[in-house]
Design a protein around this nucleic acid. Structure first.
Lengths: 336, 336
DNA sequence: TTGTAGGCGTTATCAC
DNA sequence: GTGATAACGCCTACAA
């Protein structure tokens, strides 16, 4: 089923069918109607590949996600969902590329095969060769996250450094003097994962500013690791009275470790973090946390990308968000 | 950058470059090498749209997921991740279509625009018009889930009916006489969502077979709903000593409701369910549950789809899995 | 208001 | 072993 077939049945030329469809040239009401009737009858839709070939654009964007082996966090999933939704609203399709490793065929296909008009990259490292590849390719792209030196790119990101510093200040205001940071996994941090490094920097800065004693640990992204990690943390540092965390997946385990070691939250111990609102609210007790606006960030990333596709020469834009801490039920005055 | 440019610089014809690339015709080692050198230098990759137009296939599959508004469960995410991974292994790209509503433009584009070689559809209803549209279109497709009468389609699914029946038998074996089913949301069940209906059927059957007293309730897919739902359930039916559930997202709430009403698990109360292993293990205490092999199911769905693409006339195949219940820490003898 | 024709980049059928 | 050339289905000057 192609445009020629429609044209034949409607008794017009192919170009008339095309113009009737795109509206880029006036077509008389009668012929338009006749064409539409045939189209409806046969259920014709233009071939996307032919259109892409002719127009030089695909009406598709790429979304580069971490490979499935690294289980996505709730927050990352929020990004994926919001990007897909925002793209659908703009009548764009989304091509998924699970890429993380070195020579990733999926990534190469998406980036260099002219399969997409632009790309959104998640989980960016401080030094990220996917970003380097994209910059070299000239393909419009937007990061959810940013490199160490993000001058030459457009991005949206969460200001983990500020947020964790705020968390520490909040704890200090409540009288806590011995606080810990439960960071993302050691592998991630070792690989130069931005949020891990920036959270650490914000923690160190705020601890110094307030003259606290701080200890930072890495923790894998799941509840079991969160529990193990917190238990050993408490064993080595029994003086701790509060934890700040950017590791939402580990939070439930932190809770359990505290319960198992006889600490009641928030009476004996405070926890504050950065997490998706949905996640924070579903914990018991609900976690006092800076609520990451994943939906908004995803939509903004799509917006930025559309801008870059429309005008690749325009100056780069970015968005760094630091949502306020929502007080819920896990922080209180330090117990003496 | 196109194949003609490569041909020119390598001093050969376009067809020779094409054949050097695809290997569908012998090319002398020297010319092949010369061509490869030029390709590497210029970073050339074939244009996907042109190739798709010529070959009549896109090397892309569509994945129809629920729209982002309906937050995906951990299990659904497992399916998405495993499908994407399995597709990447087969050098296929995945086009995401968040479709649920009536006239979904994204769905129409994917299905009728020849954008994909085949489609995997998730979250199938007993009566599902997306399935009807796909059958009418002739596009190869595979369901993760199945309709009421899935004769004419290929699918993989979880045998919720058998699994929930097994859960009930397990509880009955432990001496429980008053058991409840915490099902998926009322909206989902009202919309004819298969797992909800089949879980209910399995529950009713097993309750009857064992001469138990059973009560079934629907519950929205989150921990807060799980807690509210369980609390009212226990208030109305204080005689209950066990719950079976297919609602993994609500499970944490069920736990909290039991704790708040002074019931200790598994001493006073048993819980057994169907859930992703990762989810069951991350609960405290770990949930005794049939572990849904999401990774395997996603990979199988891709396999089935590849088969259908290769031979659309082949008989339909399907896979119904009923994984065994993994005994963890949430079921025990009924307390008298 | 409508028709004709060329070309987007690729693969594949002929020739040589 | 290699080259010319005709499609694939669409859009869009250019003509009428």
């Amino acid at each position: 089923m192609n445009i020629g077939e429609i044209a034949k049945r409607a008794g017009v030329s192919r170009s008339t069918v095309s113009y009737a469809l795109t509206g880029r040239r006036p077509v008389s009401p009668e012929t338009k109607q006749r064409i539409q009737a045939v189209i409806d009858e046969l259920g014709y839709r233009p071939n996307a590949a032919a259109r892409a070939l002719k127009e030089g654009r695909t009406r598709t964007i790429g979304l580069v996600i971490p490979p499935a082996s690294t289980r996505l966090t709730d927050m990352q999933l929020g990004f994926v969902a919001s990007v897909v939704d925002a793209a659908a609203r703009a009548d764009l399709d989304v091509l998924l590329s699970p890429s993380g490793g070195e020579h990733d065929r999926s990534f190469e296909r998406v980036v260099t095969g002219q399969r997409v008009d632009g790309v959104i990259v998640m989980e960016i490292r401080l030094e990220d060769d996917r970003v380097a590849r994209l910059m070299a390719s000239g393909l419009p792209f937007v990061g959810i996250g940013r490199t160490r030196d993000p001058q030459g790119m457009s991005w949206v990101d969460i200001d983990y450094e500020t947020l964790i510093a705020r968390c520490v200040h909040h704890l200090a205001d409540l009288g806590h003097r011995d606080v810990a940071l439960v960071n993302r996994s050691a592998e991630l941090v070792a690989a130069g994962y931005g949020p891990g490094h920036r959270a650490r920097a914000g923690f160190d800065r705020a601890v110094a500013e307030r003259g606290l004693r701080g200890v930072a640990v890495c923790c894998a992204d799941d509840a079991q690791a969160g529990q193990a990690c917190t238990e050993s943390l408490l064993a080595e540092h029994p003086e701790l009275t509060a934890i700040a965390t950017v590791n939402e997946a580990a939070a439930a385990g932190v809770y359990h470790a505290l319960a198992r070691t006889g600490r009641e939250v928030p009476r004996d111990f405070s926890i504050v973090g950065v997490a998706a609102r949905h996640w924070a609210e579903n914990l018991h007790p609900p976690l006092t946390a800076a609520d990451v606006p994943a939906v908004e960030l995803g939509a903004q990333a799509v917006d930025l990308l559309l801008g870059r596709i429309a005008d690749p020469a325009a100056p780069h834009r970015h968005l760094l968000v630091a949502p306020p801490i929502s007080l819920r039920a896990t922080t209180g005055p330090a117990r003496r």
